[in-house]
């Protein structure tokens, strides 16, 4: 089963950490990537800050083009920051790997993937 380990947190908090704490966080990510690399295919992504995003809103009128807006609008709550995805034996194994990147500035969600295509595929 492919599981996604998604990371939620507040953009900018990592940057506000002292260097040694940033290194602590990055050490966890480095270890997870090494461990995943050793077991096969995986995908991981870190998104740029939300300020770099543009929104494609569904058209308000049928048949019209979707609306491009320069959002997202200021939201101080948790944001989607990035994710990992890999094939795991079961939930326990996925959780074991997720714990490697747990830190006080991020909330992790471990969720099974219903379908995946591309670099890693569920088919």
């Amino acid at each position: 089963m492919i599981y996604a380990i998604t990371i939620y947190g507040e953009p900018g908090v990592f940057e506000a950490l002292p260097k040694e704490r940033q290194d602590e966080v990055m050490t966890g990510h480095g270890a997870l990537q090494e461990a995943l690399k050793a077991r096969g295919e995986f995908v991981s992504m870190k998104l740029m800050p939300p300020t770099s995003a543009v929104m494609v809103e569904p058209a308000k009128i049928e048949g019209a083009a979707p609306l491009i807006t320069d959002g997202p609008f200021a939201d101080t709550k948790e944001n989607f920051l990035g994710f990992y995805a890999a094939d795991f034996k079961n939930l326990d194994e996925a959780l074991k790997y997720a714990k490697m990147i747990s830190s006080p500035i991020a909330r992790l969600e471990v969720r099974p993937v219903a379908w995946a295509g591309g670099a890693i595929s569920s088919e």
């Binding site: 507040e10 900018g12 908090v13 990592f14 506000a16 950490l17 002292p18 704490r21 101080t76 830190s103 006080p104 500035i105």
Partner: peptide
């Protein structure tokens, strides 16, 4: 613990 919280406070400070 306080390093992590300080980072959050710093981030919230301008708005707060």
């Amino acid at each position: 613990m306080s390093d992590w919280l300080e980072a959050t406070f710093a981030q919230q400070r301008p708005r707060a």
